[in-house]
Simulated assay, not measured.
Amino acid sequence: MTADVRASATRATSTDEGRVTLHSFSFGPHYDPGNLGFGPLVCHNDDLVDAGAGYAEHPHTGLEIVTWVLEGALLHHDSTGSSHVVEAGRAQVLSAGSGIRHSEVADPASGRCRFVQAWLAPTTPGGPPTYTRGEAPPVGSGLVEVAGGDGLPIGTAGARLLLARLGPGDAVTLPDDAAQHVFAASGAVSLGDLDLHAGDAVRLTDEPGHVVTATRDTELLVWSFAG
């Protein structure tokens, strides 16, 4: 298989008051011309935010923004009028379309918040912005579509975010798609002769259908791209 392993320790780090962000791709001042994206995926940030801290209102245009909350809860407000608390184990999709403003702050009542946020290029830019959020997938049900497919709708054709919560020895088979970005948000897994630990990722671009086996309690996030 063609596997590009990206260890957690190689991620660029941004810090601000009450916030630490780890970047899987070139981002802002951490410019890396050799790591601008993977298929339509142009950002994969891992944020740890203190209660009450986060991102003040700011604009986005022409992006599909998918957020998965791992710990705590995230307060979301945007210029479409959406205002929600997104708890751990839930996802949100913000389609920026022709332009939107939003803020994201760790809910003070829930303490520290950790979330992973991905940005994808839309298939058809423009259009009105939209916001959706989803219920927590059931535990122990293998790989569950969180966004794309049967999950929350996203405007990037052929893209799916899948989640698995695995105990030691549990295994899942990756989709038969052209490419996958496999991220161990917590725990540890094996993939063939590869071992991934918390924060590690691997980008796979051929021979689909690989089996991932957890060696510890693990939360696994997989972006899968058809075509």
Rank of each mutant, 00 (worst) to 15 (best):
D50N: 07
D32N: 10
L74R: 06
S224T: 15
G127K: 02
V222W: 03
P137F: 07
T67V: 10
A198T: 10
A226S: 15
A96Y: 07
D150H: 08
A51E: 07
A88N: 09
G199S: 12
T130W: 00
V222Q: 08
P29G: 02
F115Q: 02
Q180G: 10
P125D: 10
S26W: 07
H44N: 02
H181F: 15
G62I: 04
A109I: 03
R133S: 13
S110D: 14
G89F: 13
V5A: 14
D107C: 11
D200K: 09
G192F: 11
G151W: 02
H58F: 04
T218H: 01
D50L: 10
T15N: 10
D16M: 15
H60M: 09
G89E: 06
D170M: 00
V85Y: 01
P128R: 13
S224M: 04
A109N: 05
P138W: 02
H60L: 09
H77I: 06
E64V: 14
G199L: 09
A136L: 03
T156H: 10
A51P: 06
A106G: 05
G34E: 12
H84F: 08
A9H: 11
T156W: 05
V105W: 04
A226W: 00
A73C: 04
Q92L: 10
D50M: 05
S103A: 15
T123R: 12
P153N: 11
T13V: 15
T21Q: 02
G167N: 05
D176H: 14
A136F: 02
D50H: 03
E17W: 06
A3L: 15
F38T: 08
P208C: 06
S95T: 15
S14V: 05
G52N: 02
I154E: 12
A51D: 04
L220K: 03
A179P: 01
G209L: 04
L41T: 11
N35H: 14
A188V: 02
E135F: 00
S14W: 05
V116Q: 14
A91M: 03
L120D: 05
V105Y: 04
A136H: 06
L162Q: 14
V66N: 13
L94D: 07
G127D: 00
P168D: 04
A9P: 00
D78I: 11
A179Y: 01
F225R: 08
G37R: 10
T205N: 13
G134H: 11
L94M: 15
L36E: 13
T2W: 00
G126N: 07
D206R: 09
G148L: 05
S103R: 14
V144G: 03
E64F: 11
L220D: 02
P108L: 14
V20H: 00
S8Q: 09
F183T: 13
G99V: 07
T173K: 11
H58Y: 00
L143D: 00
L204A: 00
E17Q: 07
S190R: 15
G187L: 04
T218V: 13
E64Q: 15
R11N: 03
I154T: 12
V144L: 01
D217G: 03
D50Y: 00
G18Q: 01
E57L: 02
G199A: 09
V222A: 08
E17H: 06
L41P: 03
H44M: 10
A184P: 04
